[in-house]
Simulated assay, not measured.
Amino acid sequence: MSLPPKTALITVGATAPFPALISASLAPAFLSTLSSLGYTHLLIQHGLTPTNFGGTPSGQSLLSSLTNLSTTSPLKITAFDFTPNLSSEIATSDLIISHAGSGSILEALRHVKRLVVVPNEDLMDNHQKELAGELEAQGYLIEGRVDNLPEAIKKAERATFKHFPRSGSEVFGRIVEEELGFEAEG
């Protein structure tokens, strides 16, 4: 009897390229770890990351790397830039590995998914790291880094996550405001 397929989704969002996360998601150690955890499919939403960014482990283009990996990886790997319905991809995935954009995080939390959030430390003021760290401390997700993705997904597989409240937008907004240093009105 074979196990049901398991899907991991990587999303970098719609506004800023994140070649380091795409590169890390194509690294042999990461792919091997996913496979060893029973994952059969990997979806990569690469957004504005150029398909010829040279950030892959061997300096190949993204498309060239995917072509090579399709013959060597046990995972079925699919990449796309954008989809009008990322929510549907999140809903059907078992693990979400996301940049630390608030919209992507909130969408994954609404779907009650295993979530690893990787802050893009190339962005200014590092608010993504603060947000990811606070949400991990509260038990909603695992904060990862591009250099520790295999360990982060193993940790996510073992974790018991808190369910985000239905009225989570208000809670989430307060966390974001606190982490960005805004004073509460009132």
Rank of each mutant, 00 (worst) to 15 (best):
M1E: 15
M1V: 15
M1A: 07
P4R: 06
P4T: 03
P5E: 15
P5Y: 05
T7F: 00
A8P: 01
L9Y: 00
I10K: 01
I10R: 03
T11V: 13
V12N: 04
T15V: 13
P17E: 07
S25Q: 05
S25Y: 03
S25G: 07
P28T: 14
F30S: 13
L31Y: 07
S32P: 06
T33K: 03
T33P: 03
S35I: 01
S35M: 01
L37Q: 00
G38Q: 01
Y39F: 03
H41Y: 06
H41M: 02
L42G: 01
L42Q: 01
L43C: 08
L48C: 04
L48G: 06
P50S: 11
F53E: 02
T56Y: 05
T56A: 11
S58G: 13
S58R: 15
S58A: 15
L62W: 12
L62N: 09
L63R: 15
L63N: 15
T67N: 15
L69W: 09
T71Y: 10
T71K: 11
P74L: 00
K76R: 14
K76P: 04
I77H: 01
A79C: 13
A79W: 08
A79Q: 15
D81V: 11
N85R: 09
L86P: 00
L86I: 14
S87P: 02
S88Y: 06
E89Y: 10
E89W: 04
I90M: 07
I90N: 02
A91H: 12
D94F: 02
L95R: 01
I96E: 01
I96M: 05
I97Q: 00
I97T: 01
A100E: 03
A100F: 03
S102A: 15
S102D: 08
E107M: 14
E107L: 07
A108Y: 03
L109H: 07
H111C: 12
H111T: 10
V112H: 15
R114K: 14
V116E: 02
V116F: 02
V117I: 10
V117D: 07
N120Q: 02
E121K: 10
E121G: 07
E121S: 13
L123I: 05
L123F: 00
Q128T: 04
E130M: 12
A132V: 04
G133K: 09
G133P: 07
G133V: 09
E134M: 05
L135T: 08
A137P: 05
Y140C: 02
E143D: 07
G144E: 05
G144F: 09
G144D: 06
R145W: 07
D147A: 11
N148E: 14
N148C: 14
P150C: 12
I153Y: 03
E157V: 00
E157S: 09
R158M: 11
R158E: 13
T160V: 12
F161V: 05
F161R: 04
F161A: 01
K162I: 09
P165Y: 08
P165T: 08
S167N: 09
G168R: 04
E170N: 05
E170V: 15
V171R: 10
F172G: 02
G173R: 02
V176S: 05
V176I: 11
F182H: 04
A184G: 09
E185A: 12
E185H: 11
E185Q: 13
G186D: 09
G186T: 13
